[in-house]
């Protein structure tokens, strides 16, 4: 049985004058210890997916329908008390910006100890000992001293390490990491990613990595979901998605990587922008930006179907395969 099973999850935002759909009936599974990447542009619904898994959406967002089965229990239907026993304990989250994630007026020690004591009957001293062990695991030097420090006394990379240590405190089954390195220096990004990969592998922790960085996804994950305007448009093994993407959007994303362009040439990009949630076009949401769009694309929402090694939601996926000359045409 899979660790996490999301079925037809629909999330809506109740705005003043209208209700918009942020996640449109998304479904996916995650096996125990599996690492899954969720990629897409800003506004695709990646972070909302992450927060929904913990039932942590804040108003005006809400889960409209669907199931999120975590270890067989539906997170959507859980009471506040049951949710509390899952959050931080069996399912932990790493937020985007370590500079604003930790509480500025509480010491690192207080923030670690309270997490442990929220879920286990431990004395403060016992909790501190566990915290020190976990800080060592994330290679924090002199952890005893760190416990007495406040967040502002530490660098961004150090803070994100501490947040990873907090995520690991209670040996969770799943960690959701929402762009964990976006706010950090490039030099530190690789360190943090390597650390997360190492810890997830050695502790058999499942990972959902939310990012817009396809390079990171290819290094970190076994499977990938590509999201666009609140829907999953392509999913499959990370290797297939990177090497042989089927959806024109995924292809565009990969072609847009700087590595795919010769030095001195202009970077390739997908024309246009992701539609706002209030103005999703009819049919396939990607059709205004897609060079292969047909009348069908403009009127009917494509269903997800198996194609090759991946599942893809595109009407024209068959035609794309027979027209492989696209790359040469552009060059």
């Amino acid at each position: 049985m899979s660790l996490l099973s999301v079925r037809d999850l629909t999330v809506k935002f109740a705005m003043r004058d209208q209700t918009v759909t942020a996640l449109n009936s998304i479904s996916f599974d995650l096996a125990k210890g599996e690492r899954l990447g969720i990629v897409g542009e800003s506004g695709a619904g990646k972070s909302i997916t992450g927060f929904s898994l913990m039932n942590l959406l804040s108003r005006p967002g809400y889960i409209d329908s669907g199931q999120i089965l975590f270890d067989g229990q539906d997170v959507v239907q859980m009471s506040e008390k049951a949710l509390r026993s899952v959050r931080g304990n069996r399912m932990a989250m790493i937020f985007q910006d370590p500079m604003v994630t930790l509480n500025p007026v509480l010491t690192i020690g207080q923030q670690m100890v309270e997490t442990l004591r929220a879920h286990r009957k431990l004395s403060v001293e016992e909790a501190r000992q566990i915290a020190i062990v976990k800080l060592r695991e994330v290679y924090i030097p002199s952890p005893e001293e760190r416990l007495e420090q406040y967040p502002h006394e530490l660098s961004g990379g150090m803070r994100q390490r501490i947040i990873i240590a907090i995520a690991l405190l209670l040996d969770p089954q799943l960690i959701i990491a929402d762009e964990p390195t976006t706010a950090l220096d490039v030099t530190i990004q690789a360190d943090i990613m390597e650390l997360m990969l190492e810890l997830c592998q050695s502790n058999q922790v499942g990972l959902i990595l939310i990012t817009h960085d396809l390079g990171v996804v290819s290094q970190m994950t076994e499977r990938t979901l590509v999201m666009y305007a609140g829907r999953i448009i392509e999913s499959g093994s990370t290797r297939s998605i990177i090497n042989d993407p089927q959806h024109p959007y995924t292809q565009g994303l990969i072609n847009a990587l700087p590595q795919q362009t010769l030095p001195g040439h202009q970077l390739r990009q997908i024309p246009g922008n992701m539609p706002t949630l209030a103005q999703v076009p009819p049919g396939c949401a990607f059709n205004p930006r897609c060079e292969f769009a047909t009348d069908t694309c403009r009127s009917q929402i494509p269903k997800i179907s198996q194609y090759g090694d991946v599942e893809v939601a595109c009407h024209e996926v068959h035609r794309l395969q027979t027209e492989p000359a696209r790359e040469e045409e552009q060059a």
């Binding site: 942590l56 804040s58 509390r84 899952v86 931080g88 932990a92 989250m93 937020f95 994630t101 930790l102």
Partner: peptide, 18 residues
């Protein structure tokens, strides 16, 4: 209460009164 660290505290499973 709108801040990121409050949301994070909720994500850690801390009790509301705390």
């Amino acid at each position: 209460l709108q801040s990121e660290y409050v949301r994070y505290a909720t994500a850690k499973g801390i009790r509301p009164w705390r």
